[in-house]
Amino acid sequence: FVEQDYSKISYQKISAPYGTRIQMNLPDGSIVWLNSGGELKYPTKFKAGERSVYLNGEAFFEVRSDKKNPFIVYTEDMEVKATGTAFNVEGYSNDTINAVTMVNGVVEVKLDRSKERLNLKPGQRINYNTKRQNYRVEEVDTYKWCAWKDGKLIFRDEPLDDVFRKIGQVYNADIVVMDKDLAKHMYRATFQGETLDEILRLMKLTVPMKYIEKTSEKAMPNGVYSKRYIEVVRL
């Protein structure tokens, strides 16, 4: 047995530009889909005893089974531990909601500032509000929360506030519902391949709303686009 010098391990950082998603293979053979605006950092070689990756954003993981070397996803507010399973993690550092959705297998979730560890089973989702420091575990249609990796945005009876939060993450926009009652309006739809402007125009057909673009998208000198700011008001 030759002891390896892990201090020399280098890290790879992958980013998914807004409006895109990326599929990649990790050094252990696990597969990851990284959603729009997300960033994943991982070692070019995993050290013995643990396969650790660091996520800022949303990603779907198909983890290669290896009980001796647990697979751990670290976000700013959560730690998700698995051996071999499929699950979705939402962990944008600029969002108050972190979540894990289980597709198959079992994962152990540790929440920030808490010693409590929760085991999630297939069909379960934990929704953690980092601002209020509370969480809930519920039975869900897992595909709805993972469909983004197939290029779909699926909403099933969700308040407009949550709908626009999700759309804004994907399209690099702050979309604010100015009317409190309108923010609670329940919405159902499936989008696939539409631009943000097309989605907003389609939503206007079934929701009593109009939208006002306060700040438009601009190309910055570094090639990155600035964030759009859009206000949604009741008609």
Score class of each variant (00 low, 15 high):
residue 1 F to A: 14
residue 1 F to V: 14
residue 2 V to S: 14
residue 5 D to F: 14
residue 5 D to G: 13
residue 7 S to G: 14
residue 11 Y to S: 00
residue 13 K to M: 04
residue 13 K to L: 02
residue 15 S to V: 09
residue 19 G to V: 11
residue 23 Q to K: 13
residue 25 N to I: 04
residue 28 D to S: 00
residue 28 D to R: 01
residue 29 G to V: 12
residue 30 S to G: 04
residue 30 S to Y: 02
residue 34 L to Y: 05
residue 35 N to W: 07
residue 37 G to E: 12
residue 38 G to S: 15
residue 42 Y to H: 10
residue 43 P to S: 14
residue 44 T to H: 00
residue 46 F to W: 10
residue 50 E to W: 03
residue 50 E to T: 12
residue 58 E to I: 01
residue 58 E to C: 02
residue 59 A to Y: 07
residue 59 A to D: 11
residue 61 F to N: 09
residue 65 S to N: 13
residue 66 D to H: 11
residue 67 K to C: 01
residue 68 K to T: 11
residue 70 P to A: 08
residue 71 F to V: 02
residue 75 T to G: 03
residue 78 M to W: 08
residue 78 M to H: 08
residue 84 G to S: 09
residue 84 G to K: 13
residue 85 T to M: 09
residue 87 F to V: 02
residue 88 N to M: 07
residue 88 N to F: 03
residue 88 N to W: 03
residue 89 V to Q: 04
residue 90 E to M: 08
residue 90 E to A: 03
residue 91 G to A: 07
residue 92 Y to P: 11
residue 93 S to E: 10
residue 94 N to C: 04
residue 97 I to Q: 11
residue 98 N to F: 07
residue 99 A to K: 03
residue 102 M to F: 08
residue 104 N to H: 15
residue 104 N to K: 15
residue 106 V to Y: 06
residue 107 V to T: 09
residue 108 E to C: 00
residue 112 D to P: 00
residue 112 D to E: 11
residue 119 N to T: 11
residue 120 L to C: 06
residue 121 K to Y: 10
residue 122 P to D: 10
residue 136 R to A: 02
residue 137 V to G: 04
residue 144 K to D: 14
residue 144 K to H: 11
residue 146 C to W: 05
residue 150 D to E: 12
residue 151 G to W: 03
residue 156 R to N: 09
residue 156 R to G: 00
residue 156 R to P: 00
residue 157 D to R: 12
residue 157 D to E: 13
residue 158 E to D: 04
residue 159 P to R: 04
residue 159 P to L: 09
residue 160 L to H: 02
residue 163 V to A: 01
residue 166 K to N: 08
residue 166 K to V: 06
residue 167 I to C: 06
residue 170 V to G: 05
residue 171 Y to W: 10
residue 174 D to V: 08
residue 174 D to E: 14
residue 176 V to C: 05
residue 180 K to V: 02
residue 181 D to P: 00
residue 182 L to W: 10
residue 184 K to N: 13
residue 188 R to W: 02
residue 190 T to E: 14
residue 190 T to H: 05
residue 191 F to D: 03
residue 194 E to H: 07
residue 195 T to W: 04
residue 195 T to A: 07
residue 197 D to G: 00
residue 197 D to E: 07
residue 201 R to M: 04
residue 202 L to P: 05
residue 203 M to F: 10
residue 204 K to F: 09
residue 204 K to G: 07
residue 205 L to I: 06
residue 206 T to W: 01
residue 207 V to Y: 13
residue 211 Y to G: 07
residue 212 I to D: 15
residue 212 I to C: 11
residue 215 T to A: 09
residue 215 T to E: 13
residue 219 A to R: 06
residue 220 M to F: 15
residue 221 P to K: 15
residue 223 G to T: 09
residue 223 G to D: 09
residue 225 Y to S: 10
residue 225 Y to L: 08
residue 226 S to M: 15
residue 228 R to N: 05
residue 228 R to S: 07
residue 228 R to G: 04
